[in-house]
Amino acid sequence: MSIVFSFMLGFFAPIYGGIFYGIDRVLKAKMQRRKGPPVLQPFYDMLKLFSKTKFIVNAPHTIWMIFYFLSLWAVVFMIFFGGNLLYIIFGHLLATVFFIISGYSVNSIFSQLGSNRKLLSVVAYEPILIVNAICIYLVFGTFEISEILAAPNNFNSLVFTFLSLLFVVPTVLKLSPFDASKAHQEIVGGIEVEFGGVFYELVYAAKFLEMIFVYSFIFILASNDYIFGTFLVVFSFFAVALVDNSTARIKIDSLLKALYMYGFGLGIVSIFWILLCCI
């Protein structure tokens, strides 16, 4: 991939991330036997938010959030420039911490509860991501995405990694059943609650970037077989949407338990699988 192409991919990430999100919404509506919004609905929402009055609760709250968006975007750039997987994970962690701090910096109970829950869910999914990155390293011998994408396909060894990542996807994207940190019906969106107007826009666009972040993890599992990678992403996209539609939200402690038992457990199984069966 040329540098320009990577740059374009990264720069327009919020755009096609939005299409991704729009498809997600339509898909969900179809599963609920509804017509659903147009595919371009996320852009309508974003453009609408531009024309709303700008208001804030306090300045730091907004600044932390802006930097959350910027760091997340930087992480997405790093993905497209074929950066190191571990740096990407930790960069994402940094971005998430900015977001959490933003939630804490405002005097609102729902925002604070959202931050608390988000922090716990980070504790739940961060180890899984790292363990899976190690699995990827064990198979391809490198953390560099550009090198992984050039390596021959070895998906057989990464089956359990894939399954384990399937637990991470809904947690990062705050989808049911692992959406306790957003929990619209309990804490009114958690950290998002205090943003409005153009600033909510960034939170909204960050959702698209988060989607790109997690799905790119799944994509690289297929290494140089891009078609298979796309298939994996589409498959997990459907699977996650299906699960999202057919489960209730579980509590944050059940989330921790479930992620550690199944997600983390599968990560460990994956390491054993790779080391004992595949090498």
């Binding site: 609920q32 509804r34 049911s176 309990e186 209730a248």
Partner: peptide, 10 residues
């Protein structure tokens, strides 16, 4: 209220 939107719609 328990976060089960699919069921709600159904």
């Amino acid at each position: 209220n328990s976060g089960f939107e699919g069921m709600f719609m159904k």
